[in-house]
Amino acid sequence: MNDTLDALLRLVAVLVVFLVLPLLVGQTEHKVMAHMQGRLGPMYAGGFHGWAQLVADGVKFAQKEDVVPADADRRVFQLAPAVALLPYLVVLIAIPVGPHGFVGEAVDAGLFFVLAVMGVGVLGSLMAGWASANKFSLLGALRSAAQLMAYELPMLLAAASVAMAAGTLSLPGIVGQYHWWWTLWQLMGGLVFFTAGLAELQRPPFDMPVADSEIIFGAYTEYTGMRFALFLLSEYAGIVVLCGLTTVLFLGGWHGPWAGSVGWLWTLLKTAVLAFVVIWLRVSYPRLREDQLMKFAWTVLIPVSLAQIALTGVVKVVTS
């Protein structure tokens, strides 16, 4: 009984995190972009520094009519946002925040689990794009599917490198094995992982599938209101998950001064910094072209990640 209660509590905690952190990231993005681009709009709502902007957005989304196009495949159309969002919720369960079991559920093959479930998210995009009965949506869906296929491989390879280094697939296990010099040792892998993750999230500069100036927001063209908000939420949840994973795999998670007591804080801090970097990148870089994107994956990321694996292997053999 105690076990069940424990599990239930953990699930609730994860849910809370899932509901809070993405919103925080969204708010941060508003503010950071506003500051960086000198945009005044998001600074007004609510008086001080535009604190209520997020609430206003939420209200606006909630007010809008839930439109389903006439020729659309209704059920798939309606189901798509959920499919896009849910995997990130599931993934959050396995990401450790602090030492001593500060984790939703310690999955034995956690790394594998995380990557596998994240891959499901793209189905949401595909479903949305196809069910909209809109050629731009379909194009966007096709683009995101192609992009996912291309970037899944370097991401897996980079993660495999870490797993090799740690000798385990369990995420808490990996963090437990961490030493500070790993960050340098696995630097290439980390960059690849982070970049590929960005691409999977379709964040700029890898956002051709949703490029509004080319294909009018791609798969989300026909979405309005809450469903569109859910897609946005899945994007921010993705940022959280990606940054959290990068933190756990490459930046040592809870490692830091006084890790025993405030380890969870270190994790959140590192995640937040990475999230800021994600937003920063959005503001700084122009969008890649579709063919450049593919070329980047196949000719840069995959070779680099393979080199990382080779390096890891060599070091592993030498030091063991």
Partner: peptide, 15 residues
């Protein structure tokens, strides 16, 4: 199974 089938094969099929 999840990674290959759900994540890749089905995506390819939809493609």
């Amino acid at each position: 199974q999840v990674l290959i089938y759900v994540g890749s094969v089905v995506v390819l099929l939809l493609f």
